[in-house]
Design a protein around this nucleic acid. Structure first.
Lengths: 170, 170
DNA sequence: CTTGAAACCCCGTGCTT
DNA sequence: AAGCACGGGGTTTCAAG
């Protein structure tokens, strides 16, 4: 249990650095538990699944080393933190030149308030999930960080009324 | 470090059950650390911030009790788990009747593969972030779980090419 | 509200079967 | 993969500033 966590998400499109080791039922149960409570101790986890602690530790370690478990993060209430407003900003580009897109990525990843960047196909090019402290900040985010970028052709902002956890895949 | 985690997200729009206790700089530092690594031990956390372990423990406890920290969850690589395809499904409703919407919520929360449900204002009504094992499953999800619901007027699916972590608010 | 130290408890490790 | 014994470290509580 240490602070050796590297992250960075680039999820789909050819999973990176993930060994072709198929996950068995036990692995899936472990992941389910860890997704529900990332702070369970190894002992508690083992007991809950009815396996030996040594086995449990070994499995969990393997999952982390293979990158199946990317990290463990606290889920913070952004509203309580002073960012009560969330929005999704649809972004369409004017040029899909490879370099332009790459530089836009870099910009996006450093815009404060941006929680998650989804590069999508279809009508839009990007969907940005953002959290801000005020509508003024939301406007500033769009005007000062997005629309100023030459590759951005169009943005459209939708306020998030409610965010609900889905059933997930587990 | 136990298994006493209640969850369920309904983020913005009047933060629920959050006491008007303003978070000071120390709280914010703690949250930043916990968001980066939710498994840090209390001892390590205290040392990193230069405070006593007892103080650290008390602060973190308070943050959890006040709901500022909703929980700690493992970040699982869905592709490695067998769900390499992600998509965003825009959903528009035909009726915004309160009961219809409520029942639709219930349905959505139980559709397997749905990671996150955003109830938004604007052109769309819902944005669903989903993960599936194949395009066939994606089609089935839309046809069998969404379009069959009488309140759903229109859906539009966008494939996720890449998912990138934003800078966040911390 | 914070601190420091002490006591308890339990986690994680490695070895053996 | 399981069980056990050891050692170390984390958590917790207390009195005090």
């Amino acid at each position: 249990m240490h602070a050796e966590d590297h992250e960075e998400h680039t999820v789909p499109a050819a999973s990176p650095s993930v060994d072709p080791a198929p996950l068995d039922a036990l692995d899936r149960r472990l992941l389910t538990e860890l997704a529900a409570d990332g702070r369970v101790t190894n002992a508690a986890l083992a007991k809950r699944l009815g396996i030996a602690e040594s086995t449990c530790l070994q499995r969990v370690r393997s999952l982390r080393e293979r990158g199946v478990v990317r990290g463990v993060h606290a889920d913070v209430d952004l509203a309580a933190l002073g960012f009560p407003i969330q929005a999704v900003i649809k972004v369409r580009l004017g040029s899909h030149n490879r370099d332009h897109v790459a530089s836009f990525h870099q910009v996006l990843a450093h815009v404060p308030g941006v929680l998650r960047i989804l590069h999508v196909g279809g009508e839009d090019d990007y969907l940005l999930h953002v959290a801000v402290s005020s509508t003024t900040q939301l406007r500033d985010l769009v005007l000062e960080h997005l629309n100023v970028h030459p590759v951005v052709r169009h943005t459209e902002t939708q306020l998030v009324f409610e965010e609900i956890a889905g059933a997930g895949v587990l």
